Simulated assay, not measured.
Amino acid sequence: MFFVSALFLGILAGCGANKTSQSASKNTSKGEKNEKVVVYSNSVSNGRGDFLKEEAKKKGFKLEVVDLGGNDLFNRLIAEKDAPVADVTFGMNQMMFTTLKKKGMLSAYSPKWLDKVDKKLIDKDSKFSPLSEQRVFMIYNSEKIKKNKVIKSWKDLYTTSSLKGKYIVPTNLGGATANAVVYTQLMNHKDKDGKLGISNKGWNELDKFFKNGAILSEGQTEVAALANGDVDYSYTFLSNIPVVEQKLGVKLGIVNPPYGVPQTVEQVGILKKKHVSASAKKFVDWLGTAEFQGKWAEKFGTAPVNKDAQSSMNKRVKEVMKETTPQNLDYEFVNDHLAKWDENIELNILK
């Protein structure tokens, strides 16, 4: 979740980007076998996957796209480690990709657009490459709650009696967004002598957070529950804001705690296989271009790290980035402990 400390655009189809995408299209159309590319992603919901396949088809790519939540995607890749099915995976944050790298699951590759990205975001071993920034935060219906009445932090949710049962909590920890909701709170209670590196107070407060919140009804989304008036507060991620505001006809307010909000960088990587297809590499070369990232940003509210695509960033996304402050988190610590934290929460809090 290394950061652009702005964490995570008009299409500037300059000659370099056009040349890259045209080359990818030309080469892929010819390709030795024009091989199908199997893509695993946690960033293809809400129409993103169909759009990706449509745009990729125009460039001559044959895609099979598998849509999974962040943790589910990560676990599936781990389970398939010895016989990987996916050729390419994208959307997970740098913490998850770092773990895949440590397990020797990624093939080194430097996409042609990497020179358009801040060097601080680039993996020194070229095992994965950054695509876009993401942030996770609390939200409320700004038409129902006045700004001067808005809570200041996650703790206010479970310490304000009138909000009991009036805010959404994750029902499971299968996605990166739900995980961010957890670690943004736990990291305020680091304790080297505490359980899994967190103080007893930290675990007790997280327990109160879950116990006093509301879970989603079947088929309901975190934002829909808010728009319907079922709850006063919920949570979401940066690129979701313009999409759901338009779809649900609601203007969301953003809560920026004093310590800030989690901010991560979504990545793309090629799985290590006996045969890494040329089509997989060409697909990655195209995926991060200013041409495609610009279109992706305009349609789905992402915040690309490709500098030539950033002028296409949605106006609303830019507003939210100004309203939120990146939390100063030790992501290496989070990465080392997150699996155990999730296990503890599933067994002792969400039971």
Rank of each mutant, 00 (worst) to 15 (best):
S234V: 13
V181Y: 00
S312T: 03
P84H: 02
D308G: 08
T20N: 13
A17R: 10
H337Q: 13
N344Q: 15
G49W: 10
T325Y: 02
G294W: 11
D50E: 15
V320A: 06
S142W: 10
L226S: 00
V39M: 11
G229L: 04
K119Q: 12
E54P: 08
S132M: 15
T28R: 14
A86M: 06
S161F: 01
G253F: 09
G69T: 11
G175H: 04
Q134D: 12
I254E: 04
Y233G: 05
E80T: 02
G219K: 12
K195M: 02
L157Q: 05
L157D: 05
N75S: 05
F3T: 13
K295Y: 10
F90T: 03
N18C: 15
D123I: 03
V66R: 07
Y140W: 14
T89P: 00
V305D: 06
Q293I: 11
K247S: 12
K251W: 04
K57W: 06
D123Q: 05
I168N: 02
A225D: 08
K295T: 05
F61A: 03
S45H: 15
K26F: 15
G104N: 07
G16N: 14
Y158A: 06
F128L: 05
P304S: 05
K30H: 13
S277F: 05
F2M: 10
V255A: 03
A6F: 10
T325R: 06
L68K: 10
G288M: 00
K208C: 00
K53A: 15
D123M: 04
T289L: 07
Y331I: 06
E55D: 10
K26I: 10
A297M: 08
F300R: 03
L68R: 11
P257E: 02
V305C: 03
S153L: 02
N256S: 02
E32D: 14
S29T: 15
F209G: 04
G260T: 02
V85G: 07
T160M: 05
A83R: 08
K192C: 03
L287K: 02
P130T: 14
Q267K: 06
K103L: 11
N27A: 10
G175Y: 06
K299I: 06
K318R: 13
Q293A: 08
N348S: 08
S21F: 15
S29K: 15
N42A: 13
G269L: 05
A108V: 02
P242G: 10
F137E: 03
W286A: 15
K155D: 11
Y40K: 07
K195N: 09
K211S: 14
L338F: 13
I198M: 08
E346Q: 14
